[in-house]
């Protein structure tokens, strides 16, 4: 538990979360969501919860990003709003 590292990772998590919901391109949004999952995984591992971090790295950053990208390729890439 190093609180400086925690703070840096938390800032990255917040930046990625805000960017993922404000960006107009859905493909970029999916990739930024993958980056958010990866920073969340780093934060969890740093805080000592290795098992949850491992699950987040395998499912959140790995597989669900592929699912989002596949869904975006089958629908439109631009948001309406």
């Amino acid at each position: 538990m190093i609180w400086q590292l925690d703070l840096i990772l938390l800032i990255f998590v917040v930046i990625c979360a805000i960017a993922a919901i404000t960006v107009k391109d859905l493909l970029s949004s999916a990739v930024i969501l993958g980056a958010y999952s990866f920073f969340m995984c780093l934060l969890w591992v740093e805080m000592g919860s290795v098992d949850v971090g491992f699950t987040e790295a395998a499912v959140g950053a790995g597989v669900s990003t592929v699912f989002f990208v596949a869904a975006v390729y089958n629908t439109t890439r631009r948001t309406k709003d």
Partner: peptide
């Protein structure tokens, strides 16, 4: 150790 069926299955699927 950390890990288990769900994580390993996800990596196999990936």
């Amino acid at each position: 150790s950390p890990g288990g069926g769900f994580q390993g299955g996800c990596i196999l699927g990936a």
